[in-house]
Amino acid sequence: MLEIKNLHVKLEEEDKQILKGVDLTVETGKVHAIMGPNGSGKSTLSYVLSGKDGYDVTDGEAVLDGEDVLEMEPEERAAAGLFLAFQYPVEIPGVGNMTFLRTAVNAQRKARGEEEMSAADFLKFVREKAKSLKIDADMLKRPVNVGFSGGEKKRNEILQMAMLEPKMCILDETDSGLDVDAMKLVAEGVNALRSEGRSFLVITHYQRLLDHIKPDVVHIMADGRIVKTGGPELALEVETNGYADILAEVA
């Protein structure tokens, strides 16, 4: 369970407050969606939770299963089960996707005091996961995200998610840059990973992704705060009326 309380964040470089008191609880096994207009602080929330440099937490906390993640290094958060599917997955030339995955899996296992996976076991594991996500074996051999299409990059994120088996998955605008077919494929991957012990926070600008990944709870974020919370119908309301009505209503 992820509990965010009164989270205030400003940019490190300039005196600009981005998050102005976010309160949010994602229960274990639930899928929450955050929607909101551009510049409302959605992506900042995902970066702050995962530990990216460049932000100052001025107040509040974010607790994952009893541990304050804001105190941890990014890799410690990862080992604690926090996973961020990037809006723009990063290219790493010369590093095979397989090597990257194996290094990541073993780094996390080691951090948790578990035995590292042998080369043979890992190979079996990764092939199995790739197959279930309909990912070509060829994609495993290519360097991380280099020359990948938009759809391939996002599916690669989902593959990483499947391999690392996190407790808390944050999807940052996973639908951006995808056509309908690619989005469906990615959504199928996410749905396959839904389970009782795993929570999701799906950040999106558009409702269309939520047609495929059905959320339990929808939040609307504006100007650094959660301004409205509701069921899946809230997403449909945004789709029909845009953000203006909701914002006017809560103002």
């Binding site: 995962s50 440099d53 990862a78 990037f86 790493i92 780094a107």
Partner: peptide
């Protein structure tokens, strides 16, 4: 920094 952050988010120091 983006490459390093990407790797660290996946668990590497």
């Amino acid at each position: 920094d983006d490459q390093l952050f990407y790797c660290r988010q996946r668990g590497m120091d």
